[in-house]
Amino acid sequence: MPADNEATTTQQGERAKAAVAALSTAEQVPGGSKPDPILVADNVVRTFGGLKAVDVDHLEIQRGSITALIGPNGAGKTTCFNLLTGFDKPDTGTWQFNGDEISKLAPHRVARRGMVRTFQLTKSLARMTVLENLRLGAKDQKGEHLWASVLPFLWRDQEQSVTERADELLEHFNLVRVRDDYAGSLSGGQRKLLEMARALMVGPEMVMLDEPMAGVNPRLRQSLNEHIRGLRETGMTVVFVEHDMDVVRDVSDWVVVMAQGQIVAEGPPQEVMAQQSVIDAYLGAHHDAPLTEAEEEAQLEAVQEQLAQESEEGTQ
């Protein structure tokens, strides 16, 4: 579909520009306010024993944008995801999605409200076909009620439309070839695609992707990038956790940096990555203070190299 592709490319530009334009007025400070937030969180704290895994004073996510959540290992990114989607319960904290309080909701209710997540370790349903995986995602299926399930005439039409939508997504994510294969037979990258497609079956307003690139080969990585950008074009809000800085730079409109459970920096990707607080977050503050300006520069170079190396390691 070359015509289609063209249309999306131009549109892509528009949506991306719109997101960047909207965020240009946002404050570049941790917990800064956004012009049109879809998600607003306050005082979210989660402790494991003596460790404060997440300690977020305030966070806003701009509607229709792609926000990257980055930070060193153990910064609390995944815990933060788990809390916001109801998979973990916070010690304190409230957050609103589209203005509705959802901080007390069970995970399946959060998903039904339109906030759907994926997982760091892909959760493909191995002994079900790819198609069945996708069909499972569809919301409000009549045949999912126990009594209706034994009366096929009640749900057959709906099943038909669900299958059509699933087939469209399979087409879009290049999974048509494996439509009837067991999901357990897919490669790591295909599983990531499947999980993303399955999340879209729910018809979410906001998708939370936990390390969508982990374990994906470089070629598929490129196409995943495009799929993530594509989500924004359909009007969705995307939040994703990622270690690969190239991906973050390529894809995101806004970056939130976490370290030791707290948000230490926020802003557009280029600006944020140059910030001292971000480098400190990754390497520790005052790791060794430079004596001269030349030394400082040498250190900066070393740091950048290390960052690049780290992102490479994340790739493998």
Partner: peptide, 26 residues
């Protein structure tokens, strides 16, 4: 009848990974 229906699909999904099924709003 149960296992060929969407209900059965949710059930089998739970067998494979209940967290994933939960994340899809079930």
């Amino acid at each position: 009848l149960l296992m060929r229906s969407p209900w059965g699909r949710v059930i089998k999904g739970i067998r494979e990974d209940e967290e994933a099924v939960r994340s899809l709003g079930k």
